[in-house]
């Protein structure tokens, strides 16, 4: 990582500014995810509504990141690491925006689920999964802040655990549905929630890969471990 300053100090300020926006976005997304999972488990409608409302702020930040990057490219013609910072920041912002949408969707489904019988143990499992994914997201963003390739690589590895949690939940929901068809509605919602949280994990992996690209100039080549193969016949 190049620690020298630009001769044009305004260039440094612009680059730092846009990175700060992404880090801020990351903080909001982490909070939205954990709040939404909490709202689901505690049946806290007010909290769920707050998560839904907060998503506008995340979207606005993404738009701001894109504007700033556009301006940076047009006015500064960034090269090498600077160019990678701009591209990476845009991609990370896009990933975070998706994660924000998933958190908002979780909050929305929690409001629906509040009107149904609870499925035993499900919301707790989902909250544990959300916490795990939130940690991955935090690590991916920390890796971005510190240009930490090792931490980014470990995020890629850990996404497998999330995939396994999802597969386990999938089987659990299937069992509940087979036991009692009245669970089907709730379990369908819960399943979408689990799948969306699993997608947040994938975005954390994408962010980690972008960090590796940012720091080394190359995307990681070796395939990451996967464990999300859901066998439909096997419960």
């Amino acid at each position: 990582m190049n620690t020298e300053r630009h001769i044009a100090s305004a260039f440094d300020r612009d680059l730092e500014g846009v990175q700060a926006l992404v880090v801020k976005m990351g903080g909001l997304v982490e909070a939205a995810l954990s709040d939404a999972a909490m709202a689901l488990e505690m049946r806290d409608e007010a909290l769920a509504e707050r998560v839904r409302a907060q998503d506008t702020a995340i979207d606005a930040l993404e738009a701001q990141v894109n504007d700033e990057c556009l301006r940076l490219i047009a006015t500064r013609a960034p090269a090498a690491t600077d160019l990678r910072v701009v591209l990476t920041v845009m991609k990370i912002a896009a990933s975070l925006e998706r994660c924000g949408d998933y958190a908002k969707n979780l909050a929305k489904r929690s409001l629906v689920l509040n009107k149904m019988h609870s499925v035993e143990g499900a919301t707790g499992s989902i909250r544990r999964m959300a916490r795990q994914v939130g940690l991955l997201l935090k690590d991916a963003l920390d890796a971005f802040i510190h240009r930490d390739v090792e931490l980014a690589a470990s995020v890629r590895q850990q996404d497998r655990d999330v995939d396994q949690m999802y597969t386990a939940l999938f089987r659990e929901f299937l069992t509940h549905m087979m036991e009692d068809p009245r669970n089907i509605s709730a379990c369908m919602h819960l399943h979408f929630i689990a799948k969306n949280i699993e997608r947040v994990g994938d975005h954390a992996t994408t962010i980690a890969e972008q960090v590796i690209f940012l720091a080394t100039g190359q995307l990681p080549s070796e395939p990451r471990p996967k464990a999300d193969s859901v066998n439909m016949g096997e419960v």
Partner: peptide, 8 residues
């Protein structure tokens, strides 16, 4: 890197 990014 330093030269093309405007650092030296």
């Amino acid at each position: 890197e330093s030269y093309i990014t405007g650092r030296i």
